[in-house]
Design a protein around this nucleic acid. Structure first.
Lengths: 358, 358
DNA sequence: TCTTTTTGAACAAAGGTTTGCATAGAATTA
DNA sequence: TAATTCTATGCAAACCTTTGTTCAAAAAGA
């Protein structure tokens, strides 16, 4: 059933040349080794005819290169991640790399295991979407010389190239929009604390308040996880405890889904009773019970840029330093934010220059 | 920077044994080759101390096995597929296989390319979620002896093991529910025609009509694609042309999203003006403008079963025949289907046995 | 003491590539 | 004609494992 594989030797024997000559022709080194035109033709023909493809295992063994990229992702079933994965795969394929997929289930232990696995498998590089709370295990791998780029949850003070959204600006814009719409008591439901995207979004939240001379109420900043459950729980608690609350800033798409569920259970309407704005735009965002205003990220570009950067890293001998790209976000206004009448005052104040522009 | 890799030779040299002895000990063949206890201990210790892991490329080359499974998927950013992918990855990892991911972009040409690629890469087996319109290229690969299992879009008269939902029953149940709710003019927006899931769902649609002695109106069966755009367009056309229409059966999650958009644009409310029920339950289904009634599939199980089956295929020498599993679906009733008053008649008729039970 | 068996391990080939070096014959130069 | 330079290719090692076979030394048997 299993036919004998077509190898260089098959061609060499059939044509009466040596394996090395065949290899050279097929690798475009014919001229360098001045192999005659006729020989070249004959070999190329035979290769085509026999449908020869080099054995990647043998080649990898010899060249110490597998043409393979490890993609480590916290949860491929989260649409934010899967759309990145999709573009990573397409871009990698363009450059003749294949993707080995590891889903870490938002679990650092599994992430460590995956890193180990991929190193053993001799991938040429790693695209990491880390869980994000600790980075030592990742740094350790990077320091062995493994080319790497991090997407989304990068780390402070860790000099590994990354590409992410400008989470600070995105959050600043979202919260500014809320404030300009007249909201002054805005709940912030965080994702995983001590991850950079979260910290930066939080900073955006805080600085937007300061920019508009609004006090920051610590009690409004809650939660610790990007998942739906966290959004649900924290929303329930918030609306019970904070009677003044008029708006929620959800730091991920899943969190906002949880919020919606909680608000519905409590019989609160969006945006009439509570306004909501969320990070991450999703295909379904506009179809939700109330079409959701969101901060959309360029995840297609993230994947592409990451792959391009990784490959240039693989092909180069010098280690990059301080290389990163921050992609801009976009505020998508739909109907989940209510314009409160009070907003007019604030807008007026801005126009009059009462609220300082820093 | 790149440290010399730890190989069998490293250990052999350090201990003064030969490479073959080291290999045997580390592969548990020590007793078979009666290698002394002390030698075994020494070698195992050294391996541990040096953190040795066998080079998978060399091993793969020698053994003709890569411990790698190719996963071919039409669109990883579609949540239906990505949740399957996730479970495939987890299950494969349990069995020490890694996943090489290929996203075919719902494009048969890319699917052919992917198959080629994965064969070249010497994967040990293939889990296919085919585009589904043609199968020759897949059969050809299967006939080379490549272990394979198909998920979701399997083929009629093609003897490759598959796991899928019982699409017929699911559709039958969905449409029955609509009919029992009093709907008699039900649009059916199809996915990709001539794919099995589509044909089976369509059959369910038709037979449910027959079961309730309702005529099947060909004009109500429209569309050709699992995407959002198809749902949008066909819904627009349907509501213009079919004034009697009271319900839509959408054959995929994306189609239903498109339908929602179209209905909204036309100012029609769900379910007051038009009821809708959709194949594929999604995490966001219950958060939609009108929480959607759906037919949910067991996609977690699909992934697991597929991997288990594939691995048993890899480990066995005999070719499977006629092996497949059909997973049951579940009707999830939310609020996108309106109970029409007329329904009482039908239900009464059923109770009275006027509508035959086949 | 000499032969046979057992023990414990080494040798070498194979799997398919790539690549530095060597070489036989032809062409050129002196 | 002898020495030199090209031309067109082959040889063999290396990458790291696995595995069938061989073999020396020790132990056992006669």
């Amino acid at each position: 059933m299993a036919k004998p594989a077509i190898t260089l030797k098959t061609i060499a024997d059939q044509l009466g040349y040596s394996v090395s000559t065949v290899s050279r022709v097929l690798n475009g080194l014919a001229d360098k080794y001045r192999i005659s035109k006729e020989t070249q033709e004959a070999i190329k023909d035979a290769a085509q005819r026999l449908d020869f493809t080099p054995n990647p295992l043998a080649r990898g063994l010899r060249m110490n290169k597998s043409n393979t990229i490890g993609l480590v992702i916290p949860d491929i079933s989260n649409p934010f991640f899967s759309s990145i994965a999709r573009n990573v795969e397409h871009e990698a394929r363009k450059h003749h790399y294949s993707i080995i997929l590891c889903d870490t289930d938002e679990n650092t232990a599994l992430e460590i295991e995956s890193l180990q696995l991929l190193q053993n498998r001799k991938v040429d590089g790693l695209i990491m979407l880390p869980v994000g709370q600790t980075s030592q295990h990742i740094e350790k791998v990077y320091q062995t010389g493994m080319p790497m780029v991090i997407i989304d949850r990068y780390f402070k003070d860790v000099d590994i190239p990354y590409v992410a959204s400008d989470n600070y600006k995105g959050a600043f814009e979202a919260v500014s929009y809320l404030i300009q719409s007249g909201h002054t008591t805005i709940g912030c439901i965080q994702g995983l604390r001590h991850t950079m995207p979260n910290s930066e979004r939080l900073r955006g939240y805080i600085e937007a308040h300061q920019y508009y001379n609004l006090p920051v109420n610590e009690r409004l900043i809650v939660g610790d996880g990007f998942g739906e459950q966290n959004g649900f729980l924290e929303t329930k608690l918030l609306i019970r405890k904070e009677k003044e609350l008029t708006a929620i800033f959800a730091l991920s798409n899943l969190i906002s889904l949880g919020s919606i569920r909680a608000l519905k259970e409590e019989g609160l309407r969006i945006p009439d009773d509570i306004s909501i704005i969320s990070f991450d735009d999703q295909p379904y965002s506009e179809y939700l019970s109330t079409p959701m205003s969101t901060i959309s990220q360029q995840n297609k570009e993230m994947g592409q840029i990451a792959v391009k950067h990784l490959i240039s890293q693989i092909d180069s001998t010098i280690r990059p330093s301080g290389e990163y790209v921050l992609l801009s976000t976009k505020l998508i206004k739909r109907s989940s934010v209510k314009i409160l009448s009070a907003s007019k005052n604030i807008i007026k104040q801005i126009n009059r220059g009462v609220v300082s522009m820093q």
